[in-house]
Computed example of a mutant assay.
Amino acid sequence: MTGWRSARAILIWVALALAIGVPIAAAATSEQLAWRGPVYILAGFAGIIALGLVLVQPLLIGGYLPPLSAYRGRRAHHWIGGALAFAVLIHVAGLWITSPPDMIDALTFSSPTPFSPFGVTAMWAIFIVALLASLRRRLELRPRTWRIIHIPLAIVIVAGSVVHCLLIEGTMETISKAVLCAAILAATIKAMIDLQVWRKRRELRGESAARQ
């Protein structure tokens, strides 16, 4: 049984590494990089890394990355969220440096490119979650209140990031990009379903204990 758990843990981590690493490696071999400057390339890869971190987040909060305990998973979720916000900041700052007019159009939702509004919406949701997470203790947000705020924003982040990525025709390779986006959606849906089930079980146990 222990051997199976170890093998399963290895397979999970290998699958995660491939889901994130293959799109990055494929983008690194793109012919389009020859026409891009270093700042633009940095911004692009920061965006790809941010997308990979979006996949890691539901896996951590759902407890799907052994051998991390529930507590360590939540702590890692917190720190990865900060890394995600930082990667998005680099992505946006790099694009601003290379083309301020395009970024102004994107941030004001007046860009003609169809992928821009989805990316900007996801960006603001990421920044809001990061800000609230850093102020959570000061604001004295209860777990229930935090979930009510965090879950809708997480849905916006996932949906916006996936659509933004799929609509862009850039350095990312099509198939590996689609697989990564599908993995993000699957992991997010599973985590939300499982966490909702666990919460209902705890509520039922609490009601049963109160009756006794």
Results as ranks from 00 to 15, higher is better:
A7Q: 03
R8Q: 14
L11V: 13
I12E: 03
W13I: 11
A15K: 09
L18N: 07
I20H: 03
I20S: 03
A27I: 11
A27C: 07
A28G: 15
T29P: 05
L33A: 11
L33K: 07
W35E: 15
R36G: 09
G37R: 11
G37S: 15
P38Y: 13
Y40P: 02
F45H: 04
L51Q: 12
G52M: 00
L53Q: 09
V54Y: 01
L59H: 06
I61D: 00
L65I: 10
Y71Q: 06
R72M: 02
G73T: 02
R74G: 00
R74V: 00
H78I: 01
W79A: 02
I80W: 00
I80D: 01
L84H: 01
L84Q: 10
A85I: 02
A85G: 05
A87S: 13
I90G: 03
I90S: 00
H91K: 13
H91C: 13
L95F: 14
T98C: 08
T98E: 15
T98Q: 06
S99R: 14
S99Q: 15
P100L: 06
P101I: 14
D102C: 07
I104A: 15
A106G: 12
A106N: 08
T108E: 15
T113Q: 15
P114W: 10
P114I: 13
P114Q: 09
S116T: 09
F118Q: 03
V120W: 06
A122N: 09
A122D: 12
M123Y: 12
I126C: 08
L131H: 09
L135G: 00
R136W: 01
L139G: 06
R142M: 05
P143D: 05
W146G: 00
W146E: 00
I148M: 11
I148V: 13
I149C: 05
H150V: 03
H150Q: 12
L153Q: 08
I155Q: 04
I155C: 07
V163I: 15
L166K: 09
L166Y: 07
T171W: 02
E173S: 10
T174C: 03
I175A: 14
K177M: 15
C181A: 08
A182F: 15
I184H: 12
I184T: 01
L185R: 04
L185Q: 01
A187F: 05
A187V: 13
I189L: 10
A191Y: 02
I193N: 03
R199T: 08
R199Y: 02
K200M: 10
R202M: 11
R202E: 07
E203F: 05
G206C: 06
S208P: 00
A210S: 09
A210Y: 07
R211E: 00
Q212Y: 14
